Structure formats: C-alpha cells, structure tokens
Amino acid sequence: MNFDDFIGLLRLTFRNPAQAVRALQALKLPFAARWMALMVTVILSTLLMILVIKAKPDSVMPIIAGVVGQPIAYVILQLLGIAIASWLLTNLGRGVGGKADFPDVLLVITWIEVLLLSAQVVQSAALMISPLLSSLIGLATTVMIVWAAIQLLRAVQGISNPLVVILGLVASFMVTVFILSIVAAAFGLIPELPAEVHS
C-alpha cells in the first residue's frame, strides 16, 4: 500500500465503511502481518506522545506523563488491551449473529488505531500552534473516529443494528479496562500522581 492508497482508504472509511472493510480484507494480510501493523502503529503513537509530553509537558495530564518513564510497559498494555478487546468483540459479535473471525476484527481494530494515530499527528501539530485549536481538532476527530469504528465493526460483523455494536464496544471497553487495571496494578505500572494533584 502506497501513500495514495492510504489516502484513498482513509476517504473510503468515512464515505463507505463497508467497502473500506472489503478493501482491507482484499489486502489478504497474513495474521502475523496484522499483528506487526498493530505493533508498529502502537509504537509510533507512543513515541509521538512522548515527544508531545517533552515539548509541552503542561499540556497533558500527570498520569499520561507517566508514559515517558515507562514507554515499553505502556506499549505492552496497549497491545494487551487491543488483543483482549478484539477477542471480546469477536465473541460478543458472534453471540448476536455476527460473522467475523478474530483476524478480521483485529484487522479492523488495527485500522482504527491507524486512524487514531493520524488524528494524533494532526492534533499534536496543532498543539504547537494553539492548545485550543488542538482541543477542537481532538474533539472533532474523536467523534468522527467513534462513528467510523461503529460502522466498520458493523460491516465486518455483518450486524445491521448499530446499537448492538455500541453496546458491544462499551462492554468490551469496560471489561478490558478492568483487566488492564488489575495487570497494571499487579506489576506496578500505574504511575504515581504528583503531590499537588492529590491536594
């Protein structure tokens, strides 16, 4: 996939999500390549976050700033969370008549992560100009990507009711966060907040 293909798929995602899913599936990426794409995306996202934290330390919450001290742990937690969420979405989808298997759900989730990374790049660039502009871009892109995520998961699962997908996303998110919080606490990966935050 070259840059023009990427832009075309990006546009197609918001114009016709079902066709975008078919285009992703048509790439026929091996399962290992899907994991590799996800890992690269998560690593790039983490590196960009670290750069933003170092450039604008006052613009991020203290708990997010903890990423600087534990980038590898952050990447591992993200990958674990995405794997858990993908597995949950696959099985919850099948429970209500969905047809997608885990590799295809992972492929769609990876593409959603690519969308988030693209939005992160734009938002980070805007932050260097104006925090307000960055916040507005962040809000707009979040709404767009949430909508795209719902439509892409509907398409890959073959589920017509968007409410079912929304409920599945919420349930998967809550379970994933619960599991990750236990893992993070068990391995001491939750950064301590500065004293001024507690006061």
Rank of each mutant, 00 (worst) to 15 (best):
P162A: 01
T176V: 01
L167S: 14
L133S: 02
K99E: 13
L163S: 01
V42R: 01
V183C: 08
T141V: 14
T141Y: 08
G98V: 10
T142Q: 11
R34Q: 14
A171Y: 11
L163K: 14
Q151V: 03
V68I: 15
L27W: 05
A155R: 11
M36F: 15
Q120A: 03
L127S: 01
V108E: 04
G98I: 12
P30R: 05
V21G: 11
L92K: 03
I43T: 15
G93T: 09
Q157G: 07
L136A: 10
G98T: 06
T110K: 09
L80Q: 02
F3M: 06
L189S: 04
A148N: 09
D101K: 14
Y74P: 07
A125K: 11
Q25I: 11
V96Y: 05
A195P: 01
M49I: 00
T110R: 03
L48W: 07
G168A: 11
P17L: 02
F14C: 06
V75D: 00
V68D: 00
V114R: 13
M174T: 14
I182Q: 05
F6K: 14
Q19E: 15
I53Y: 04
T142I: 09
L38K: 04
F187Y: 14
A65G: 08
V143N: 02
S160Q: 12
L38P: 06
A65R: 10
G168E: 12
L193R: 10
A186I: 06
V177G: 04
Q25N: 11
L10W: 14
I72M: 13
S86K: 05
G168H: 09
S45K: 09
A33T: 11
M174G: 15
P30S: 00
G138N: 02
V105A: 06
